[in-house]
Computed example of a mutant assay.
Amino acid sequence: MLVNKSIDIPYQQLPFKGQFNVAPLGTFRNELTDQPHRHDHFQIIWITRGKGRHMVDFVWYEVEDNMIFLLRPGQVHQLDCEREGHFLYFTEQFYFTNKHDKETLYDFTNLFDNWHGYAPITISDHTSTSLHGLISLMAQEKTTAPHCSQGIVKHYLNAFLLLIEREKKRNAAETMMPFTHDARVVQLRRLLEQHYRTEHQVGFYANAFALTPKRLNEITKETAGRTVTELLHDRIVLESKRNLAFSHKSVKEICYELGFEDPAYFSRFFKNNTGISPQDFRDMMFK
């Protein structure tokens, strides 16, 4: 059970100004901190010492020392653990201020993708030392306001993200999970995020790349291990679960919001993908 009553999933507002910040874990707590909530920015939670569990989009993960959780805007999470460490948040607008940034800075959006399934990243002791140094540099630069240089902070953050990506690849190699990158799949994720409520046909997404549906499916199957339809259905099911678990919306309302015209068909779709009906899923969450 996640919470004891159905609520609209809140966006937690942090008491910091600007589009970037770094602070120790535990700096800020309110009534939402230990309840399911989400943020409208990218967030990195680095637990240097911890014990307990952390839920991300309905899956609980056991917390270990030197573990990093990467959260995209809108992902629902809930901390249920003792923890020490750091958190960073930033917006895409902060990181990519202009076209020049797009050409010179690392495209972190792929790092936050979870095509192969979400998983926290275990950090090696060697990398941990480097990350601690970058945290200190970013925090120190922030204290120089109003003379803080956004460019300097972005380059520290750039190095921080690159080190995390290397650790993610190391984790994948140790678990025999492939770690591949295709810019078209990154763009497809963005398209799915924008249109999954209204566009349910593969042809719409294939046309955006001037590809046939068959070819786009081959690309996503090779890179993500899933077809476009499977990726689309995964996203629809996730949003369905979020609404069923954390809102007062009826199944019919959720159905229409996600682009389905027939509530009965939506219920069959949900059951085919989860093994349980929408109402049974909602009831199960609050037993």
Rank of each mutant, 00 (worst) to 15 (best):
P15N: 10
F42P: 07
H54R: 08
L70K: 05
D34F: 09
A23D: 07
I47M: 07
D34P: 03
V76K: 05
G26T: 09
R53M: 13
Q75G: 05
T33Q: 12
T27W: 07
L32I: 12
Q19N: 14
W46H: 08
G26V: 10
L79Y: 03
R53W: 04
L79V: 15
F69P: 01
H39T: 12
K17N: 15
D57Y: 01
G26Y: 12
G18H: 04
L32F: 06
G18Q: 11
E84W: 01
Q13I: 15
G50P: 09
V59L: 06
L70Y: 10
D34L: 09
T33H: 07
T33R: 05
E84I: 02
D65M: 10
E31P: 03
W46G: 00
L14A: 06
G52F: 06
L14R: 08
D40W: 01
F69T: 05
D40G: 11
H39G: 04
H77Q: 12
F58Q: 07
A23H: 04
F16V: 12
F69V: 11
E84C: 03
G26N: 11
F42A: 06
R38I: 02
I47T: 09
V63R: 00
F90Q: 02
Y61G: 08
G52D: 15
D65E: 13
P73V: 13
C81R: 04
L70T: 09
Q13C: 08
E64D: 13
V56G: 03
G50D: 13
W60T: 11
E62K: 09
Q35R: 14
I45S: 02
H77T: 08
E82H: 07
R53T: 14
D34K: 02
F28V: 05
Q78G: 06
I44L: 07
G85C: 03
V59D: 15
D65C: 08
R72G: 02
G85V: 05
Q13K: 13
K51M: 11
